[in-house]
Amino acid sequence: KKRTSIEVSVKGALESHFLKCPKPSAQEITNLADSLQLEKEVVRVWFCNRRQKEKR
């Protein structure tokens, strides 16, 4: 499966949402994916990866 490159503006939106809520619910992920026009899975994985980055 190909990697999804996320635009800078979208990254900013994801980042600001992450600061408010690092573990969004499935519903929040769906809403966020719809508003940013990304697949739910891409948003879910982004949050997962971002939480791991926070641990490092």
Rank of each mutant, 00 (worst) to 15 (best):
E7C: 13
L19N: 13
R51W: 13
E41Y: 03
T4W: 03
V10L: 12
V10D: 15
K23L: 11
V43Q: 01
E15W: 03
K23V: 10
V10H: 14
K53E: 12
E54L: 05
C48S: 14
L32Q: 01
T4Y: 07
A33I: 01
N49M: 06
R51G: 08
A13Y: 08
A26T: 10
V8G: 14
S5R: 13
L36A: 01
R44D: 09
H17S: 12
K53A: 14
E7W: 04
G12E: 15
Q27H: 09
K23M: 12
P24D: 02
S9D: 14
K40H: 08
K11C: 08
E15A: 01
F18T: 01
L32T: 02
K40F: 11
L38E: 02
V42H: 05
L32F: 03
K23N: 15
E41R: 05
R56A: 11
A13R: 13
C48N: 15
R44W: 04
I29M: 12
Q52H: 09
R50W: 01
C21R: 04
I6Y: 07
Q27F: 06
K23H: 08
V45S: 14
P24Q: 02
K11G: 08
E54N: 04
T4S: 10
S35D: 08
E54W: 03
V42L: 10
S35C: 10
S5H: 15
K53N: 06
E54Y: 03
C48K: 10
K55S: 12
L38M: 08
L36N: 01
R56D: 06
C21Q: 15
A33T: 00
F18V: 01
E15S: 00
S16W: 03
Q27G: 10
N49W: 05
K1D: 09
L32P: 00
K53H: 07
L36E: 00
S9Q: 14
Q37I: 04
E54I: 02
H17G: 03
P24K: 00
I6T: 14
K23C: 13
F18A: 02
E39F: 00
Q27M: 07
S5N: 15
Q27L: 10
K2R: 10
L32Y: 01
S16T: 11
T30R: 07
A33E: 00
S25N: 10
N31V: 11
E54F: 03
E7R: 11
Q37P: 03
K1M: 05
G12Q: 09
E7Y: 05
L14Y: 02
L38W: 02
K55W: 08
Q52A: 14
V43L: 04
S25H: 03
F18M: 00
V42K: 05
V42P: 03
V45L: 12
P24N: 00
K55R: 10
S9K: 13
F47R: 00
A26P: 14
V43R: 00
